[in-house]
Design a protein around this nucleic acid. Structure first.
Lengths: 109, 109
DNA sequence: ATATTTTTCCTACAACGTATAACAAATCGT
DNA sequence: ACGATTTGTTATACGTTGTAGGAAAAATAT
């Protein structure tokens, strides 16, 4: 059972949240909003490609939009395998943090 | 703000749980128990070393134990920086998963 | 046509994850 | 005492993941 890495988790959840609005720009913004992490597009697309190769995501090209620079978008979607992987990592996270409150971790001194 | 990787999170939490019992063997077992992940010692120590270099852990050598093979142990302990990093990643996880139930991810078909 | 905007792709490299094997230090048995 | 056994750590090597910078593509605007 191979667990998702942090980045994989972040990206898959971003795609899930965006539903059918998920493409490069929105994903990057979603990630920044939720985690504070600012990815370059280079970094982003490489990771998304790897997730596709692993079968956690699938993609399809949209039609061009009738606005300036409105070229085709690569839309991403979670696969069943991706959903299962998210469920699994969530279970592991719960197990890891079970019984640990943030308070218990506060710096005491 | 640099987030903890999955492995870092796993190891830091294992050390935290073990309190003053945290050394190679117990950490490896703890990780296996909680996450199902079976690490080789080689993998484990490399990662622990990196966490020390980053200041998330500190270590000290114990006295030898009066039992067969009871050589000195390298005991690990969370630093304040490590605790803070755990709190931060916990917050990000909460934000990421906010409003997402496992049920919503279940494969529908 | 050429410029501008939006979006994606290519490439290269640093950082992380992991296994195998070697090394070290304690006790045990004779 | 000293080789065998047990427990624990270190060294090394390599595949995978994470990340940035800049080139390329595809649309509209002038």
């Amino acid at each position: 059972m191979k667990l998702l890495t942090r980045s994989e988790e972040i990206l898959l959840l971003a795609v899930w949240r965006l539903q059918d609005e998920a493409y490069g720009v929105t994903i990057r913004d979603q990630v920044a909003d939720v985690t504070g992490k600012k990815l370059s597009f280079g970094a982003l697309f490489v990771s998304l490609d790897r997730l596709i190769r692993k079968g956690h995501l699938k993609s399809s090209m949209s039609d061009p939009l009738p606005v300036r620079g409105g070229r085709k978008r690569k839309m991403y979607e979670l696969t069943d395998k991706g959903r299962v992987a998210l469920c699994e990592i969530r279970k592991v996270e719960r197990a890891m943090w079970k019984g640990i409150s943030e308070a218990a971790l506060e710096v005491s001194s």
